[in-house]
Lab assay of single mutants.
Amino acid sequence: MTEYKLVVVGAGGVGKSALTIQLIQNHFVDEYDPTIEDSYRKQVVIDGETCLLDILDTAGQEEYSAMRDQYMRTGEGFLCVFAINNTKSFEDIHHYREQIKRVKDSEDVPMVLVGNKCDLPSRTVDTKQAQDLARSYGIPFIETSAKTRQGVDDAFYTLVREIRKHKEKMSKDGKKKKKKSKTKCVIM
C-alpha cells in the first residue's frame, strides 16, 4: 500500500485542523484551538488504489514558523489553505509557496490551493482571484467548507493525484537520464 505524506499549511484560523478532522473523523470542530502540530493517518481508496494518507496539520501562528522547514522537508505534497473571508490569509499563500519551493529546492512541488469556509456569506476573496492565482502557479484550486464537508475529500484526493503525477514524471525523467548515460565512448 502506497503511503502519501501530505502537509496542510496556511495562516492561523483558516480551518486547516477543521478540514483535516472532517476528512479523518467526519465531524466539524467549530471551536478554535490553535494547533502546534498534529499528525493523522487514514486509509482510503483513490482511483481504485488503496493508500495510506499521513497528514500533518501544522501551526499557522507566526511564533511556530521555525518548525516549518522541518515538516516541509518531509512532506510530499501540500494543501495551501486560505479562508475566503480573510484576504490576508490569501496573500500569505505566496509566502508559504515560496518557502516550500526553497526548502524542497524545487520549482515543481505537488500543491493544491484550497479556499476554505465557502459556506460563509462574508467572502472577501473572489473565486476568480483564487483561480487566477492557482493557474499562475500551475496547481489545482478547490473551494471547501469544513463545516458542510463540501470539497473536503476532493481537496485531499486531488493532492494525492498531483503527487502521483509528480512521481510518474520524475521516474520518466530518471529513465531518460539513465538511457543517456548508457551511451559509451570508444577510443581507438
Rank of each mutant, 00 (worst) to 15 (best):
K172D: 07
I84Y: 13
F28D: 00
D69G: 04
V81Y: 14
K128I: 07
D54Q: 01
T35P: 00
Q150R: 08
I55H: 02
I24W: 02
D54I: 00
Q129L: 06
D108M: 09
S181I: 02
A18N: 10
R73A: 14
Y40H: 00
C51N: 06
G138D: 04
E3W: 01
M188D: 15
Y71C: 15
L23Y: 08
F78C: 02
H166Y: 06
K16T: 02
P140S: 03
D30S: 12
R161L: 04
Y137V: 09
R135K: 13
F82A: 11
H27R: 02
L6D: 04
K104R: 11
D69H: 09
Y4V: 13
C185F: 06
Y32R: 00
M72C: 04
L113F: 11
T124S: 08
V9I: 11
C80F: 14
V112H: 02
K88P: 15
Y40C: 00
K177M: 11
Y157N: 12
E49T: 07
Q43K: 11
E49L: 03
C51Y: 11
D126M: 06
K165G: 11
D33S: 02
L23E: 15
T124F: 06
G75S: 10
K101M: 09
N116Y: 00
G115Y: 13
V7T: 12
Y4H: 11
I24Y: 08
P110V: 03
Y157M: 05
M188R: 12
P121I: 08
E162N: 13
D154W: 05
Y32P: 02
V186G: 08
E91C: 04
D30Q: 09
E3Q: 08
Q61Y: 07
R97G: 12
I139L: 14
C80V: 11
R68W: 05
F28N: 00
R68E: 15
V14W: 14
D108Q: 05
Q61S: 13
M170D: 13
L159N: 01
F82L: 06
A130E: 10
K169I: 06
E91V: 05
T35L: 00
V103H: 10
E162I: 09
V81F: 14
E107R: 08
V109Y: 04
K169P: 15
M188L: 03
F156Q: 02
V44W: 06
I21A: 03
E168A: 09
P34T: 05
I55P: 00
G60Q: 01
G60Y: 01
D105F: 13
M188F: 11
E168V: 10
I163W: 02
P121N: 12
D92W: 15
I21V: 10
K117D: 14
N116R: 01
I24Q: 12
A83T: 12
Q25I: 15
S17A: 00
S122F: 06
V45L: 10
S145C: 10
V114E: 00
D30N: 11
E107H: 04
I93L: 11
V160Q: 12
C118W: 06
T183H: 07
Q129M: 08
D154F: 05
D92F: 11
G151C: 09
D154A: 06
V45G: 12
T148R: 13
K169T: 12
K16I: 00
V29C: 10
M67S: 11
R73K: 09
L120G: 14
V9E: 03
G15S: 01
S136I: 07
E62N: 08
S65V: 07
R123F: 06
K165H: 11
K88W: 11
D30T: 13
S65F: 08
V8R: 00
L159H: 02
V152A: 10
S145E: 15
I93M: 15
T144M: 04
K176I: 11
L19K: 14
I55W: 01
H27D: 15
K167W: 05
R149D: 15
L133V: 07
E49R: 09
A11N: 10
P110A: 03
D47F: 12
A130H: 07
I187E: 12
G174C: 09
E31M: 09
T158F: 12
D47H: 11
Q43G: 11
D33L: 02
A66V: 06
K182N: 07
K178N: 06
